[in-house]
Design a protein around this nucleic acid. Structure first.
Length: 395
DNA sequence: AGTTATGATTAACC
DNA sequence: GGTTAATCATAACT
């Protein structure tokens, strides 16, 4: 009697179980879970152990070129990230273990019960899968919260906008020096950027020395170019300052050449320059400019000012010092741009007066962008630059 | 507080 | 892929 009843129950269960099973057997890969998995993998949380994820990012950065990545704030970030990863992994393991324990427990229970009620092995299997599903949903929660944590960490540490730090004085100095001494074509090559980044990172006071990356150099130049172009007047003072500075640094080498100025009073070289300055400001400015512009129209692209006129008005800034410096450094090839800048002011001034927009020896073109300097200063200066520049300017 | 300076991000462009 | 131009968000200044 009893065995017969048991078998009947078995059959019934088998049938209902089949129908249920058929309906929910397929378990589609949850897209959200996939998303989370992918993200965790991308963030280096779910990937291989120790050093896997963070090292991947670091390796990518290192492989990109600069051995000195932006590690100052990165290290902190990395530490936190690995902390998260550790928590994640231990939790995950715990869940896994709990899942297994629970599964075996349930299986034991079912096996025990199978003596008193009919339980097919398929049913056990189904039970197990249900348990697994439950646990995986818990795991998903874990993943989700981990993702959130990573996101928060990211926004806290990596979003540089949040805690923007100005570059050190020296770094800005270096960048500005390069910018104004390559004013006609302020587009540093990749190597130049790397060099600048390196130089900027080795700021003298390396206490809080903001390590500067190539990307930051690019950012800086991008910003500088656009902002300089947008309001040249605002940068006049700065431009003069750096023009003078860079010129002065090269002055030593060129000291002798200065004496050759044919025009006037070799007796008092100092006053001679002053005179020149005055000349510029006053009557013979036009004459000068024709000379100067003539020599530049050939070498560098003409440079039409976007909103001409009011840009080069501050002649006062062109005092004896700065101009003198430019003069002195004129025959040094790397100073051509500096010279050009100083000259450009006079030319610009002339533009205003004479209304001839053609003469503007910068690299800016009419559209407001720097021309693709058909002949970059570094190329033209050694060949035709220094000679002509020197002879012309000393005059 | 309001303003300016500045580094970073983004979309559009080539 | 690098630039430009606009924009954001914060630092620094008034």
């Amino acid at each position: 009697m009893k065995p017969a009843l048991f078998s009947v129950l078995c059959e019934i269960k088998e049938k209902t179980g089949l129908s249920i099973r058929g309906a929910q057997e397929e378990d589609p890969p949850d897209p959200q879970l996939m998303r989370l998995d992918n993200m965790l993998l991308a963030e280096g949380v779910a990937g291989p152990e120790k050093g896997g994820g963070s090292a991947a990012a670091a390796a990518a950065a290192a492989a990109a070129g600069s051995p000195t990545d932006n590690s100052i704030e990165h290290s902190d970030y990395r530490a936190k990230l690995s902390q998260i990863r550790q928590i994640y992994h231990t939790e995950l393991e715990k869940y896994e273990q709990a899942c297994n324990e629970f599964t075996t427990h349930v299986m034991n229970l079912l096996r025990e019960q199978s003596r008193t009620r009919p339980i097919s092995p398929k049913e056990i299997e189904r039970m197990v899968s249900i348990i697994h599903r439950k646990f995986s949903s818990i795991q998903m929660q874990l993943k989700q919260s981990t993702c959130e944590a990573v996101m928060i960490l990211r926004s806290r540490f990596l979003d540089a906008r949040r805690k923007r730090r100005n570059f050190s004085k020296q770094a800005t100095e270096i960048l500005n020096e390069y910018f104004y001494s390559h004013l006609s074509n302020p587009y540093p090559s990749e190597e130049a950027k790397e060099e600048l980044a390196k130089k900027c990172s080795i700021t003298v006071s390396q206490g809080v020395g903001t390590t500067i990356t190539v990307a930051q150099v690019s950012n800086w130049f991008g910003n500088k170019r656009i902002r300089y172009k947008k309001n040249i007047g605002k940068f006049q003072e700065e431009a003069n300052l750096y023009a003078a500075k860079t010129a002065v640094t090269a002055a030593h080498a060129a000291a002798a050449a200065v004496q050759n100025s044919q025009t006037n009073s070799p007796t008092t070289p100092n006053s001679g320059f002053q005179m020149k300055d005055e000349e510029f400001q006053l009557d013979s400015a036009e004459n000068k400019n024709t000379l100067l512009t003539n020599m530049f129209t050939g070498s560098s692209g003409s440079f039409n000012l976007p909103n001409s006129g009011d840009l080069f008005m501050s002649m006062q800034n062109l005092n004896g010092d700065s101009y003198q410096g430019a003069q002195v450094g004129a025959n040094v090839q790397s100073q051509v741009d500096t010279l050009r800048h100083v000259i450009s002011q006079t030319a610009g001034y002339n533009d205003v007066l004479g209304g001839n927009p053609m003469y503007s020896p910068h690299g800016l073109n009419g559209n407001g962008g720097w021309q693709d300097a058909t002949t970059p200063s570094s190329v033209i200066s050694p060949t035709e630059g220094p000679g002509s520049v020197h002879s012309d300017t000393s005059n």
